[in-house]
Design a protein around this nucleic acid. Sequence first.
DNA 1: CGTGATGTTGATTATAATCAAGGTCTGTGG
DNA 2: CCACAGACCTTGATTATAATCAACATCACG
Lengths: 282, 282
Amino acid sequence: MPEPIEFAHDGDVSPPLRRLGQSVLLSQDEVAFFENMQANRIAYAKNEALISEGDDYRCCFALRKGWAISSRMTMAGRRQILSVYLPGDFIGLHINFHRRAIYTVSALTPVEAALIEPMRLIEIQQRWPVLAAGMDWSAVRATNILSEHNVSLGARTAQERILHFYLELWCRLMLVGEASSEGFDMKMTQEQVANTLGLSVVHVNKTLKALVKKGLLKIEGRRVEVPDVAMAVRMADFDAAFLDSFRLANDASTRRDGTRDMLEAIDELTDEMMERRSEAAE
Amino acid sequence: MPEPIEFAHDGDVSPPLRRLGQSVLLSQDEVAFFENMQANRIAYAKNEALISEGDDYRCCFALRKGWAISSRMTMAGRRQILSVYLPGDFIGLHINFHRRAIYTVSALTPVEAALIEPMRLIEIQQRWPVLAAGMDWSAVRATNILSEHNVSLGARTAQERILHFYLELWCRLMLVGEASSEGFDMKMTQEQVANTLGLSVVHVNKTLKALVKKGLLKIEGRRVEVPDVAMAVRMADFDAAFLDSFRLANDASTRRDGTRDMLEAIDELTDEMMERRSEAAE
DNA sequence: CGTGATGTTGATTATAATCAAGGTCTGTGG
DNA sequence: CCACAGACCTTGATTATAATCAACATCACG
């Protein structure tokens, strides 16, 4: 029976490990293997491409520092941002299933990424089942986020969309210690937000102003705060379940960072919302 | 070394197996195991729910007959359809990662589904690696489709969106022998299309009319045809790569159903489009 | 026959895109 | 230290796209 490890400080572990550790109970061996695996690190400058659409380069990354995005170009010349990668996220986990990359991944800020060769992934699947389960969950979570964006794009107003997206980022950042319960630092420009949420820059700008005016957001430069979380969660129809459901090892005892309070608060609001949603359905 | 199996008629195999066989080279044992696994079948009536949002029921299905959809309700009372399941697709492969279902799955037509217990999935992962790889690809493909819908919702006009969606369905149906190179039978109402593509029913109706008028679609009742595939593919910015990239066993020799011609034609158009897209990017 | 679900159409309104112009901030080179 | 360029943000005016509203038509089915 593997014994869960205790870290003196969260700073001791890489963000990817930290995220894995939140969803899965890793043994010392697994931790060692995983941290070791990140030896091969690459730094990317702001705006540099990690993967380009059409490449037949097949490699996956664990994001250690910085933000990245994946995007696709439309023939009409529009860019759609498909996902935002934050520290701790895996990039291109399934790239090996394709002959060539079907999207571009580029650094939003200076980035440090650990390169994970395909062989490593196979090794993990064969020899480290718990690690593999954690990475599976990571992939499932990425799909959940994508689904949630689908709901936003298809069925939410600009205000709801933007607010929802900001809350999502905030939650995700908190889970890797890159945001406090006060707020977070937004690394995306309004244009990038627009390309993520299917809106024009101008409209994003105006909508943000409106949200600030309503007291749903507080924005000073890059700094974002949410004055009234309960109100924001309600108005954005936000449910943290899609970010935080794989709780095999994810109970109170494993969270030593204050993250829990906020996520629990959102969970509570969720129950209330589930009911109201059923009512709305008839 | 397992030997690939040959079927006298495609009708001899279940749609899920047929789809797996297109992406992965299965041995006789694997085929036997997989077909056996589908013993436990459930029939659902039109509109019946296979899985309901909030359920803690955890089971996955292989869809054998009929169409199904997954959807979510917004608090504002809007419904967003997240994915459409066609014969051969897996439903809820990752439902075990969640405490409770985060979306509803319901039958669009009468449905026959094989129930796959969680234990079976674990067994597959441990004992049938090739089968597991095929199912992994299935999951990746589902994510690709979701990404593509994201692009549609965020960066395509109503006409492009609808045309793209119809082409997607056509391709997917051809791969399971439910459509011919002439066209296919649309099982969704205009309202369901609207809820998938983030449009209003009225607008879907008018846009469909416009597409028909332009000669991009031909619609008679449920029957849909695409008079000029090349034109349609170009105008919808359609690239079949996201449906058909995992070609370990997917070369000419494994396709005995005429599907290849059309997909290859689309592939050819794809190269041309890739170039134009790069130009558009600058 | 009704009755309910689906499809169709035109008129009106709302939301967001586009266009155009400035404004602010930051880093760079003179 | 200042001037300048480029990236980003802001704002108002105009236009386009799609939603909403309101009928009515059609069809399948009990």
